[in-house]
Every structure is written in structure tokens, then in C-alpha cells.
Nucleic acid binder design. Structure first.
Lengths: 116, 116
DNA sequence: ATTATTAATCGTAATATTGCAATACATTTA
DNA sequence: TAAATGTATTGCAATATTACGATTAATAAT
């Protein structure tokens, strides 16, 4: 006998495909203006450290650190120790694979003949 | 004199640009596997009604309805009354503008020379 | 008019996310 | 070794999100 517990507030990932969950996780990592701003700043400067972002964005250091962690989790940025600070930059390989993933999703033909 | 209240748990949208907030909102609307699945099903069938999705995805009707509302909020789907049911389909114009928005973001040059 | 069908809304429970102060940790410099 | 610098972690407060049962609303069929 199998029990299925429904816990409110938590996404039912088990009913979706691997691909669907993966796409959603990618979108979620990008679904905050601070993380968009962080990526844009890293791209503009080619690289930056946490404190740069604290100055630039005006969020507290722990908040920036937390957003950096979420971007690191999907691998789109990587950090390397540089003295006392950590140099963050874009992981080009992951960046392009994310780009391809999203491009593939939006390349689906959505022509509407049946309705609307 | 200006008071700035920091309310925990709420995104500080005012410190980011219009564009950054807009992008984040778009990503957020797509940041759930159910909403990915809904879009894919609508695309595959060209159109569908809420109950189709309830059957297909195995989520409760109010849950599907809630996800449909979030997709409607960014305009990527639209619904038209069809008897007792509502026929949902992709809004091609919005779909392509979202596609272009995301493509533009990922078309930034991310070459890394300085670091990592 | 009553019943059936379909979807939206309301209310609620539980987890997730966002943000920051305080603290801990790790490396460099004096 | 001690102080300085920069970042991560912990803990907590508050809002946001996810999910569903119950109800409401709106149209179609009897």
C-alpha cells in the first residue's frame, strides 16, 4: 500500500518530467531582478567580487552572497579565490547551454489555427 | 525627510531598472514545472481547456486555474469563452516578444579574459 | 426553473523566498 | 601572532508561493 502525502506549499516535482523540472529550475534562478543585475554587472566588468555588487546594487552583503549562491547552484557563474576576495565570472559553457535550453523551448511552433 | 522601510521577505524592486524587473517577472512566470507543462500541452494541442490540464497533469482544478492566471498575467496565453468552458491558447505576439526579450539577454557577449 | 458542467475565487495550511544583523571563517598584511 | 579585509553561514522576521477543499458564478442542457 502506497501513501501519497500532499504537503501544501511544496511543488509536486514527481509528476513532471526531468526536462520540465530542469527548465523550471533554470527559470527560477533567473527570476529575481538582483540576480539579473548581478549577471549584467559581471558581464559588463567581465568579473567582479561580492563587495563590488554590494556597492553597485545597494543590498546587504549577506543578501548578495545568497543571490550569488543561487546563481552558482545552476552553474551559470563560478568563483575563484583571489587573495582575500573571490572573483566571480560567467561560466561560458553553462551560459551557452542555458541559452540553448531556452532557445529550444521558445523555438517550438506555436501557430494557432484551432482557436482564439 | 525620507524614510526607507525595509520589509523582509519582499523584493526591493525600486532599486532595479524597469528592464531588470520586467525580465525577472517573465522568468518567474515560467519558473514552475506545471506552467512549463501547461504551455507545452497548449502548444501540442494548439488549444485546451482547464479540465484537460487537470486530467493531463494530475493537479487539482483550483491549482491549474491559479497557474493559468499567472501565465495570463504576463499575457503569454489568452482564453476565450467556448460554451461552458474556456479555450486557452498561446498569444503568438507575446510569445515572440518574450522569446526576443530572452534571446536579447542571452545574446550578450560573455567572453572572459580577466579572470577564472 | 432545475440540474449539470466548467472555471474562478476564497480561505487556509505549509513550505519557499527575500532581506538583514550578527557571527564565523579564511586569507592577507603588519 | 594580531589586525584587517572579504565572504559565507546562521538565525530570524516577513512576505510569497504552492496546493487543495469548499464555494461561487456562469453557461448549457433537460
Amino acid at each position: 500500500m502506497q501513501y501519497i502525502y500532499i504537503v501544501m506549499g511544496i511543488t509536486k516535482t514527481e509528476i513532471f518530467s526531468e526536462k520540465q523540472n530542469e527548465l523550471a529550475i533554470t527559470f527560477k534562478a533567473l527570476a529575481h531582478p538582483a540576480r539579473i543585475a548581478i549577471l549584467q554587472h559581471i558581464i559588463k566588468q567581465q568579473a567582479c567580487i561580492c563587495n563590488d555588487l554590494v556597492q553597485e546594487l545597494g543590498l546587504a552583503q549577506p543578501t548578495i552572497s545568497q543571490h550569488l549562491r543561487e546563481l552558482k547552484n545552476i552553474g551559470i557563474i563560478k568563483g575563484s579565490i583571489e587573495g582575500t576576495s573571490i572573483c566571480y565570472c560567467i561560466d561560458e559553457v553553462v551560459w551557452h547551454s542555458v541559452k540553448n535550453e531556452l532557445t529550444a523551448f521558445f523555438s517550438q511552433n506555436v501557430s494557432v489555427e484551432k482557436c482564439c
